[in-house]
């Protein structure tokens, strides 16, 4: 008897909760859906993981650029926290809310493909940001080209070591596609220029790991002329380790990402810690522009590959100001 009563109470709770959620969804869609009145074009953006400086920067930029267009309205950005299942449900929730435009930065291609197709079938335009999905059923893809960036980093290394030399490579998580592309581009660019990759290890994108690996290389006594890291965090970590060992002056450091934050790669170039870094474009500006175009029923380019900017001491300050969002958003 008591067990039955408990079950009933539990069921009731679930029902109440569900209706509560549903009503919330209703209000959200009603505020979003009344574009006829205010003419607002509602955008839902599903971010794969907020807790990465690069993606945090992307969020801020997107919020900033969307605000430049009066008729665009960005719903609160959802954070999938690196979890595919979470992101799928968040995307589906946007579809439920009948947003006018869906922007997705997929955590991984395969799991996010079905919900994107769902949105497509529901007639919601979809912009894929940064990483791809395994379907053509989207409106636009905007993203950087990691292979190209890796290649440019390789070219910078060739320029920095005209007589050839030894390169150590700090890699991102080995299974990640950006890691694979940044590695391949770099190797293709340095081929035939007398540059050897003497060390290459995974440092999982983080500073502590990069410091540890760099320390071990230094201990091994490997002669290193240049460190190529797959992101700025690892490059800065490697610089720190080399500086700690008093060997930073005889080496050059190349990173990727070029984030305009106090702790980022652009500042590190300005300070002379990194030789150069390459902006991995967030695509936020382009996404906002595409969103505006869609709101005006204009056509958008299906696939937009973004170029990169090489940051050197010459242009660092200027690029930093361009991308610095701290003063532009609240």
């Amino acid at each position: 008897m008591t067990r039955k009563a408990l079950t009933a109470v539990a069921a009731l709770c679930v029902a109440v909760l569900a209706s509560g959620c549903a009503s919330k969804t209703d209000t959200a869609s009603s505020t979003g859906g009344d574009k006829g009145d205010s003419g607002q074009f509602v955008i839902g953006y599903s971010q794969s993981n907020n807790a990465e400086p690069y993606r945090q920067q992307l969020n801020k930029q997107l919020q900033y650029y969307v605000k430049q267009h009066k008729n665009l309205k960005l719903l609160p950005i959802t954070d999938a926290k690196q979890d595919n299942a979470t992101q799928v449900s968040q995307v589906q929730s946007f579809i439920q809310q009948k947003v006018d435009l869906l922007i997705v930065s997929p955590n991984e291609p395969a799991p996010l493909t079905p919900p994107v197709e769902q949105a497509c079938k529901a007639g919601i335009p979809v912009i894929i940001l940064d990483r791809t999905v395994n379907t053509d059923c989207y409106t636009a893809f905007i993203g950087g080209d990691n292979y190209q960036i890796g290649k440019k980093a390789g070219e910078a290394a060739v320029k920095a070591l005209p007589d050839g030399g030894n390169v150590a490579e700090l890699r991102g998580v080995l299974s990640a596609q950006p890691q694979i592309d940044r590695d391949k581009g770099f190797r293709d660019a340095i081929a035939g220029h007398g540059i050897k990759i003497v060390e290459s290890r995974e440092a999982k994108w983080t500073r502590p790991n990069a410091i540890q690996v760099m320390n071990q290389w230094l201990a091994r006594g490997t002669k290193i002329d240049l460190v190529y890291a797959h992101n700025d965090d690892m490059a800065i970590g490697a610089y720190g380790a080399a500086a700690g060992a008093g060997k930073a002056d005889s080496m050059k450091f190349i990173g990727i990402d070029g984030l305009a934050i106090p702790d980022g790669g652009i500042r590190a170039v300005q300070q002379g810690h990194l030789l150069t870094t390459f902006v991995y474009p967030t695509g936020a500006k382009e996404a906002a522009e595409a969103a505006y175009a869609l709101s005006q029923h204009q056509k958008v380019t299906k696939k937009q590959t973004l170029g990169t900017v090489e940051i050197t001491q010459a242009n660092a300050a200027q690029v930093y100001d361009e991308f610095d969002m701290s003063s532009k958003t609240g």
Binding site: I211, N215, A219
Partner: peptide, 18 residues
């Protein structure tokens, strides 16, 4: 395997420091 390099004070310091 790495004799002197391993026993080097800096190496051990770095390893423990990490």
């Amino acid at each position: 395997t790495k004799g002197d390099i391993f026993l080097d004070q800096t190496n051990l310091t770095n390893a423990i420091g990490n």
